[in-house]
Computed example of a mutant assay.
Amino acid sequence: MSVRIDEIDRKILMALQEDAGQSLDEIARKAGSSKTPVWNRIQKMKKSGMIQGQTAVLDAEALGFESCFFVLIRTSQHAASWKEQFMNALNARPEVMEAHRLAGDIDYILKVRVTNARAYDKFYQALIDDVDIYNVTALLSMEEIINNRPLPLREG
């Protein structure tokens, strides 16, 4: 569902994506408005679900999570019970940064952050112990080129 936003909303959202911890004064300045209307707009966007929270972006490598794997999963099972078991297995593993169900030959892709290849193998072994998976392919990211890019909220 697409939500209509105006130019001030767009500027507020861009400022929040840039740094959600900046002051309301700074966000208002960037939006070309004053604090109270900007605060009201932010509250409205939170209530609508457009803004889902605020988080800090951590440097994974600086914290020892030097390996990023993209895990391609194929399954021969598509029953709701299997999907529930799979989702429970993923939710139990904090290494899973993202999970997407795909169209095409691959059913799911996971973004997994671990300290090293040995830690990935432990993750992999635990996952296949918990849920029946037809095929797993792991791709090691050699270099992160773009991360945390803001949504392109420009009109057009």
Rank of each mutant, 00 (worst) to 15 (best):
1 M>P: 06
75 T>C: 02
105 D>T: 10
137 T>D: 11
56 A>G: 08
69 F>N: 04
73 I>P: 00
135 N>F: 11
103 A>W: 07
9 D>M: 06
26 E>I: 05
30 K>G: 02
137 T>E: 15
8 I>H: 00
23 S>F: 08
52 Q>D: 11
99 A>T: 09
1 M>K: 09
74 R>D: 03
156 G>Y: 02
113 R>W: 14
30 K>Y: 02
45 M>K: 02
156 G>R: 10
148 N>Q: 11
83 K>S: 02
39 W>L: 12
130 D>L: 10
102 L>K: 04
34 S>I: 05
149 R>W: 06
120 Y>W: 08
32 G>S: 05
106 I>Y: 02
73 I>Y: 01
25 D>M: 10
64 G>Y: 03
19 D>K: 08
62 A>F: 03
126 A>T: 15
5 I>M: 03
51 I>M: 07
97 M>W: 07
133 I>C: 04
18 E>W: 06
28 A>H: 03
87 M>K: 04
106 I>V: 15
4 R>P: 02
48 S>L: 13
20 A>G: 15
102 L>F: 07
58 L>W: 10
36 T>Q: 13
58 L>C: 01
48 S>F: 00
105 D>A: 10
71 V>F: 03
21 G>I: 03
17 Q>L: 07
128 I>R: 15
15 A>S: 15
61 E>F: 04
119 A>F: 09
152 P>T: 07
117 A>H: 12
4 R>F: 06
34 S>G: 06
98 E>A: 09
151 L>I: 11
106 I>M: 07
14 M>Q: 14
12 I>A: 01
78 H>Q: 07
20 A>S: 14
78 H>E: 09
35 K>V: 12
33 S>V: 05
74 R>K: 13
23 S>A: 07
126 A>R: 14
141 S>E: 11
19 D>Q: 03
94 P>T: 11
146 I>Q: 09
85 Q>H: 04
72 L>G: 02
22 Q>F: 00
45 M>S: 01
113 R>C: 07
18 E>R: 12
127 L>C: 07
50 M>A: 13
111 K>L: 09
11 K>R: 15
142 M>S: 13
113 R>N: 12
70 F>A: 08
36 T>S: 11
5 I>E: 01
9 D>N: 08
36 T>A: 10
40 N>M: 13
3 V>C: 00
15 A>V: 08
26 E>T: 12
120 Y>H: 06
129 D>N: 14
101 R>V: 12
72 L>Y: 13
54 Q>M: 13
22 Q>G: 00
146 I>G: 00
117 A>D: 14
46 K>N: 05
126 A>N: 14
4 R>V: 10
39 W>R: 12
145 I>R: 10
76 S>H: 08
109 I>C: 03
23 S>T: 15
98 E>Q: 14
101 R>G: 08
51 I>F: 07
120 Y>C: 04
153 L>N: 01
145 I>A: 08
103 A>Q: 05
80 A>S: 12
156 G>S: 08
104 G>E: 04
118 R>I: 10
139 L>F: 06
31 A>K: 06
5 I>R: 02
63 L>V: 06
17 Q>T: 07
11 K>P: 00
133 I>T: 04
13 L>G: 02
34 S>H: 09
78 H>K: 11
120 Y>V: 05
